[in-house]
Every structure is written in structure tokens, then in C-alpha cells.
């Protein structure tokens, strides 16, 4: 079967969605299909928000099936359109009142939000089926558009490489250093940790300078490492030998870090408002769900440090729960 995977991308930005579409194309090819990725640039600001949807609308997509993923790729028209929804334009929906959204309460913003909801609903209703990457995304689709999506989980990147190592003396966080990932919480928690455990927060982003400044200001150089970008082989090693993983984003769509931690047999420390992360982290079973305060996170780190056997048990339970995720299964369900 000839399958076109549709993905939208802000040029020069690569994140989870780009990894997932690339992996989906590879999985389709490995399952005997001819598959191509069609990428178009997109813009998120409200002045240009309808341009890319309209461009997708006009594309000639000659294939047996089209799998659309993120906003606004699902505006593609095809007689066999399957949507596997990564996310919509969150700034117009659940993030409309967030500081980072440009959708205010002015008339223009409200009309753009109204029209986008109508467009989204119409475009998504054309699909033969709507799958979502997580229950969180399905729940937003239900609350905002009144549409039903079926959750279809997939394995994270590096799933074949991640391995279980020792339960060492650091907690690990690989993440983009952006506000919605809340890396500053980890730095803020470390002065409250009494067990001598260190934190390694790897990744790049606009908060890098701010985090370095906080580490210096609070004299945490021996407690917090900010190594920046880490290549994949080093990432696997850091996962493998960590005591556990802290992943505490705000209302995450899915959260590869959680699944990667579990594949490395590590428990995950998170917070009650982390979104898709909570579909996997069960408090006291596969990790620890905190209130997100510095003291709460610190207590969770100390709890892992005080009972490494229990930490390992939680991590291995997580590993069992993600063991069934596979790309062939994703392909089979998308093209069923």
C-alpha cells in the first residue's frame, strides 16, 4: 500500500512529533508498505494560523491512504484519511489562557478561536478513524471539539537501545529546557534533598542561561549538572545508571521521557498536573506523583535513595507496562 504520512513542522525545530513521524514512516516501510513523509512548515501565531491549514487543504496527495498527525496536517484531504492525532493548536484550546498563548479575550482572538474550532472539527470529521497518541489528547478532543478519538500508544525513540543498569547516585532528566517542561523545578528542589543524590538535567532550550544562573546563585554546582545536548549513546548510559528519572512537564501530550525511563527500568518522579505522563506513572507502583513543590520533589528523590530496592521494583514494573508497545502493532491498527 502507498501511504503518505503528513506532518507539520516549525522549520529548524525538532521535537517528539518529528521523531514520531519519522519512526512511523520507517515502521510502515518495514511492514512492506511504500511510505513517504510529507512535511510542510507551519506557524502558530494567530495572524498566520489559517495559512498552513489552507495549504494542506490544497495539496494533491496521491496515495492509497494518508495518515495525518499534528496540527495542521489533518487538513489534508483524502478519501482514506486516518488521523493519528499528536496535538492540535494548543494555544487556541487548553492553552488559550496561558501566558505563552497569543489568544486573548479580544474580539479578533475569540473569532479566530471559534473559526479554528469549526475548521478543526470539519477537517477531523472527514477522517475514517481518529486515533490519538494518549488519553490526554483524546480528552482534549472530546472537551473542545466533541469528537471521539481512540488512544494508540507507540514506543519512544531509542526503545531498542535502552537498557537497565545500576541504580546510581543521580536522578536524570532529559528534556528541552522550556517553560512547559518546568526544568526549574528540579533545580529548586535540590537544596531540599538530604540524601546526597545529584540531578543531571540534559538538553537545550531558551531557559538554559536562567538555569545555569540559578545553579550558581544557589551554590548547587556539585548537586546539579546541566550538560546541554547529550548524544544518544550517552543518553542511554545516563538512563541506565540513574537512580530514577524526574519528568515534570505541564500537561504533556504523551511524554517519551517516561517511557524511556521505564524501558531503562527506572521509576519516574512527576507531578499531579503532568498530563500524559500520568497515564503511565502510578503513584508508588511505577513512580512517585508529587505536588510539584520543591519539597515534594525532594522528598520523592530521598524516598528513592532510601530504598533502592523499592526504586528498582517500581522501575521494573514500569518496564513491564511498556513492554507491549511496538511499531508493527501501531501500523496494523492505523491501517486496519
Amino acid at each position: 500500500m502507498d501511504v503518505i504520512v503528513c506532518g507539520a513542522q516549525v522549520p529548524f525545530v525538532r521535537g517528539g512529533a518529528e521523531l514520531a513521524t519519522a519512526n512511523l514512516v520507517r515502521a510502515l516501510q518495514e511492514n512492506g508498505h511504500r511510505a513517504e513523509l510529507v512535511h510542510l512548515p507551519t506557524a502558530w501565531e494567530k495572524e498566520r494560523v489559517f495559512d498552513a491549514p489552507l495549504a494542506w487543504r490544497m495539496l494533491p496527495l496521491d496515495a492509497d491512504a494518508v495518515i495525518a498527525t499534528n496540527f495542521p496536517s489533518y487538513y489534508a484531504r483524502h478519501h482514506r484519511k486516518i488521523v493519528w492525532l499528536f496535538h492540535q493548536h494548543r494555544g487556541a484550546y487548553d492553552g488559550a489562557d496561558a501566558a505563552w498563548s497569543d489568544m486573548g479575550l479580544d474580539d479578533e482572538s475569540l473569532e479566530i478561536q471559534r473559526q479554528l474550532t469549526e475548521w478543526d472539527t470539519n477537517a477531523l470529521l472527514e477522517a475514517q478513524r481518529i486515533h490519538t497518541i494518549s488519553d490526554v489528547v483524546a480528552d482534549r478532543l472530546a472537551r473542545y471539539n466533541g469528537l471521539t478519538g481512540t488512544t494508540l500508544y507507540h514506543p519512544p525513540p531509542l526503545s531498542d537501545e535502552l537498557r537497565v543498569g545500576e541504580y546510581g547516585d543521580y536522578v536524570f532528566t532529559p528534556t528541552r529546557l522550556e517553560a512547559n517542561k518546568r526544568p526549574e523545578r528540579i533545580v529548586a528542589a535540590m537544596p531540599h534533598v538530604s540524601s546526597g543524590i545529584r540531578a543531571i538535567v540534559a538538553g537545550r532550550g531558551s531557559m538554559s542561561a536562567e538555569l545555569h544562573k540559578a545553579v550558581e546563585r544557589d551554590d548547587l554546582a556539585d548537586r546539579v549538572e546541566l550538560p546541554g545536548f547529550v548524544p544518544d549513546d550517552a543518553l542511554v548510559d545516563l538512563f541506565a545508571d540513574s537512580l530514577g528519572v524526574i519528568y515534570d512537564p505541564h500537561d504533556e501530550d504523551y511524554g517519551y521521557v517516561t517511557l524511556q525511563a521505564f524501558l531503562a527500568g527506572k521509576p519516574v518522579i512527576t507531578s499531579h498536573d503532568a498530563g500524559g505522563v500520568l497515564e503511565w506513572v502510578e503513584d508508588g507502583v511505577t513512580g512517585i506523583v508529587t505536588d510539584g513543590t520543591p519539597q515534594g520533589l525532594a522528598d520523592a528523590i530521598d524516598r528513592l535513595a532510601s530504598d533502592k530496592a523499592a526504586a528498582a521494583e517500581m522501575g521494573m514494573e514500569g518496564r513491564r507496562r511498556v513492554a507491549q508497545l511496538s511499531w508493527p502493532s501501531v501500523v496494523e491498527q492505523l491501517l486496519a
Binding site: Y93, A96, L110, Q113, R114, T117, E118, Y144, N145, G146
Partner: peptide
């Protein structure tokens, strides 16, 4: 059409 959440806003 004005969706319920937009009505609220």
C-alpha cells in the same frame, strides 16, 4: 458555530 469552551471565553 460557537463551541461551549469558546462561549465561556
Amino acid at each position: 458555530p460557537v463551541a461551549p469552551f469558546t462561549r465561556s471565553r
